[in-house]
């Protein structure tokens, strides 16, 4: 079973929930798909055994074969190739690696070389199989890294995926194909507004979902009222407590610092299995 933990709004407690769930159940594979800012390793402290670079294929022109016809520039929708006075200029940072230029060059003058955009790291944290992706500094596109990380999914384990904030492509790419999505939010108008946007994505992806209310008590009742009226299951409420915030700030997971929460996360897991 694959469970994704997403939010819409940033900083609502995705990583807190994902790591505590992972530490409460058996036979887990943990995948950090927030490749822009992966933080789960801070709480799970894995030992990393292997690092695999992620490349996207960018074009390379064989100048002897190239006639400067301009076809490659014409077919590239990302404007990553320009042809000036029969010389081809390539802007690798705009390239998505789609291969259109390679396929369509009439002279077969284009080959590809890998451009590194990130890394996939694998390791172990106690019994947990741990995988994380990291986007390189200054590289704009997280999705190729997310795709590579998701290739590591081990179907023999319960897979827990920590997702980037937002509701655009990196979030959709990570949530896609999962069996259940936990949306973590907070009871403020910001949390509610962004939750509604996230729900639209999850519904379009046809993934079952439920909500966890974190920092319960800081805001108002509009979030709960909304969940009630839309019949969205509230799976768990985590109260706002200074101690919980302090544990997180020191990189201690909720269930390690306050083991009494283990039972709640076990129940959460049971509820998700039943909801499927």
């Amino acid at each position: 079973m694959i469970i994704t933990i997403a939010a819409g709004k940033g900083g609502t407690g995705k990583t807190l929930v994902a790591t505590s769930l992972a530490l409460s159940i058996d036979n887990v594979q943990f995948i950090d798909c927030d490749v822009e800012e992966p933080d789960a390793h801070i709480l799970l402290r894995p030992e990393i055994f292997s690092r695999k670079p992620v490349f996207i294929p960018v074009p390379q022109v064989d100048e002897e074969k190239c006639t400067g016809c301009g076809k490659c520039s014409e077919v590239c929708v990302y404007h990553a190739i320009a042809v000036f006075s029969q010389r081809v200029l390539i802007f690798p940072e705009l390239c998505h690696g789609c291969g259109a230029c390679v396929h369509l060059c009439p002279e077969n003058a284009i080959s590809e070389e890998g451009m590194k955009v990130g890394v996939v790291e694998s390791g172990k944290a106690d019994g947990i199989e741990f995988i994380q992706g990291k986007l390189d500094i200054g590289k704009p596109m997280p999705t190729p890294v997310i795709r590579e990380v998701k290739r590591e999914i081990n179907p023999k384990r319960t897979v827990i995926i920590d997702v980037a904030p937002g509701t655009s492509c990196p979030m959709a790419e990570a949530v896609k194909g999962s069996d259940f999505c936990i949306l973590v939010t907070e009871p403020t108008p910001f949390g509610l507004y962004d939750l509604k946007l996230a729900i639209e994505v999850v519904k379009k992806l046809k993934v079952n979902f439920g909500v966890i209310i974190n920092r319960d008590g800081i805001g108002d009742y509009r979030l709960e009222d909304y969940c009630k009226s839309e019949e969205i299951p509230v799976l768990l409420k985590i109260p706002f407590q200074r101690k919980i915030a302090e544990l997180y700030s020191k990189g201690v997971s909720l269930v390690s610092g306050m083991p009494e929460w283990k039972e709640d996360f076990n129940n959460l897991f049971r509820e998700i299995k039943e909801a499927r």
């Binding site: 940033g10 900083g11 990583t15 822009e36 800012e37 933080d39 801070i42 986007l135 500094i137 200054g138 590289k139 704009p140 596109m141 997280p142 980037a164 904030p165 937002g166 655009s168 990196p170 997180y248 700030s249 020191k250 990189g251």
Partner: peptide, 29 residues
Amino acid sequence: PGMGCPVISSLSGASLALLVTEPTLSGIH
């Protein structure tokens, strides 16, 4: 949030990036 395309795009032409952080290990990272 993040550091990918929307962040890079928001930084383009900026006179100053004000980085708001919090004293958590994740915030620092």
